[in-house]
Simulated scan of single mutants.
Amino acid sequence: MKYNSFVVFGLGKFGQAIADKLLESGADVMVVDHDEDIIEQYSSKATSAVEADLTDPAAIKALGISNIDCAIVSMGMSLEASIICTMVCKECGVQWVVAKSGSERMGKVLTKIGADEIIYPEEESGIRTAKRLIASNFLEYFDISDNLCLVEMEPKDKWVGKTLKDLNLRQKYGVNVIAIKDGSIQESVNPDVPLKAGNPLVMVLHKNNLSKLDKTIAL
């Protein structure tokens, strides 16, 4: 589902990263934090920037968030503030509440009081980094589903100068090249254009083919 209006509670590194990305996309974003200096930084770029005590239900209700599509509760280590913001958001009718959690126990608590989605950023980052390191030829690795993954990798020397049609990666390794990066992202991939060194490929493949592709491209 697409959301157009957001409120971000808590402007630590995680909250700021989300708020900045949403603002870059042109979304309507309210940011809320107890730190006056941080709120001052966002006052000129967010739709609304409010200093508030995130452990005070009355202060949260006073924000007028009933028409907000999606709330991001990003105080991962503050259970009290996370609980109160999540509960008030659901009481006010916010459609979708995403809550950051620092532990599985905290995640379960937030789910029980109404959070629609729980994010474990440190755990997810750790898993993604481990997978990238294991598959050493890949620049990035992302899970898409239980069976599919997305990887980004530099074309190997033996691939440079050859076209995707020449390499026939889909038939050999079950790889579907969906984009090529050359400063920007070429979303429309021409199979007849020779690959260039330094232009990473973005590919989708079945996880069963991951180790085969990694071993093959290492040669």
Rank of each mutant, 00 (worst) to 15 (best):
L79Q: 03
D166W: 13
K172R: 15
I84H: 01
G64W: 06
G76V: 05
D192K: 07
D182R: 12
T216H: 09
V189E: 03
S5R: 02
V177C: 10
K13E: 14
F6T: 07
L139F: 10
T129D: 13
L54S: 05
L205C: 11
R170M: 08
K207H: 06
Q16N: 10
G64A: 11
A59G: 04
S125R: 08
D53G: 00
N190A: 02
E154P: 00
Y141V: 02
F9N: 00
A27L: 08
K100L: 08
M87F: 14
L150T: 05
G10Y: 00
E51Q: 13
K45Q: 14
N208T: 15
E187F: 14
S43Q: 11
E123T: 11
E140D: 15
D56I: 00
L150N: 03
T163Q: 02
L164V: 10
K156T: 15
I39E: 00
K45A: 09
S66E: 11
S188R: 06
T86R: 05
I119W: 06
Y120S: 05
A49F: 00
Q41R: 15
E80Q: 15
V189Q: 01
V31H: 01
K158E: 15
D143L: 09
I118R: 03
V7P: 02
K112V: 04
I134R: 14
K45L: 11
E152R: 14
L213I: 08
D157P: 13
R105Y: 09
K181R: 14
K13P: 11
S125E: 04
L110P: 02
S188G: 04
Y141R: 11
V202N: 01
I180A: 03
K13I: 12
P191E: 03
M30P: 06
I118G: 04
K13H: 15
E36I: 15
L63G: 09
M153C: 13
S25M: 10
F14H: 08
I65V: 10
I83N: 05
S82T: 06
K2Q: 13
E40S: 09
K196G: 04
K100I: 08
M30F: 07
A49E: 01
Y3W: 06
L63W: 08
V189F: 04
E117R: 09
V8Y: 05
V73T: 14
G107D: 01
I118E: 03
V32N: 00
I18S: 06
S103T: 06
D56V: 00
L133G: 05
N67F: 06
T129G: 04
S25T: 08
I180H: 03
V98I: 14
K156F: 07
K207I: 05
T55G: 10
G15Q: 05
A99F: 00
F142E: 12
F6A: 02
E187G: 15
D214L: 07
N168R: 13
D116N: 13
L167K: 01
K21G: 12
L219K: 11
I68F: 04
G64F: 10
V109M: 07
F142T: 09
D20T: 14
A19F: 11
S44W: 02
